[in-house]
Amino acid sequence: MRRIATIAALLLSPLLGGAAERGETPPDLAAAGWTVGAWRGMPQALFSFLPSIASGTASGIAPLPRTAFGNGVAAGGIRVRGQAAGGFVRRALSGPAQCLSWRWRVDAGPPATALNRRGGDDRALAISVGFAGWPTHASLWQRTQHGFAQAGAGDHTLPRSMLIYTWGGTGQEPRPFPSPYLAGLGQVRVIQPADAPRGRWVEQRVDLAADWRATFGGDPPPLLELSISADSDDTRSPLDAAVDGIRIGPC
Rank of each mutant, 00 (worst) to 15 (best):
R118P: 07
R200W: 04
T136R: 08
R175L: 05
G82C: 05
W102Y: 02
Q192F: 10
L208F: 03
I53F: 01
L226D: 11
R66K: 08
P135F: 02
M162G: 02
D207F: 07
G168E: 12
P220D: 00
D155E: 10
L125M: 02
Q192L: 14
P174T: 07
Q145H: 01
G147Q: 07
W212N: 02
T166N: 04
P174Y: 13
W212S: 06
S59D: 14
L208A: 02
A74S: 05
G133L: 09
P27E: 14
I248F: 05
Q192W: 06
Q145V: 15
H156L: 11
A149N: 10
P27I: 03
L224M: 06
L11Q: 12
G249N: 09
G184E: 06
V129A: 03
I228P: 03
S52N: 14
A108I: 01
R123T: 06
W167F: 11
W102G: 02
G17R: 01
V206R: 14
L223Y: 03
G218A: 05
R40V: 13
S101D: 00
A32H: 02
R160W: 09
G18P: 05
T170A: 12
P14G: 13
A151R: 05
D219R: 06
P43K: 06
V106G: 08
L223E: 00
E225R: 12
T157I: 10
W201F: 14
S52V: 11
G184V: 00
R105S: 07
A19Y: 02
I248G: 04
W201K: 14
T235G: 11
Y181T: 10
I191R: 10
P14D: 15
H156C: 08
T35M: 13
L10W: 11
D240Y: 10
W34C: 05
P238C: 09
P238A: 11
H146Q: 12
G119R: 08
I246F: 06
L224T: 00
W141F: 11
G18K: 08
D122S: 14
A19R: 04
C99A: 10
V243E: 07
A124W: 05
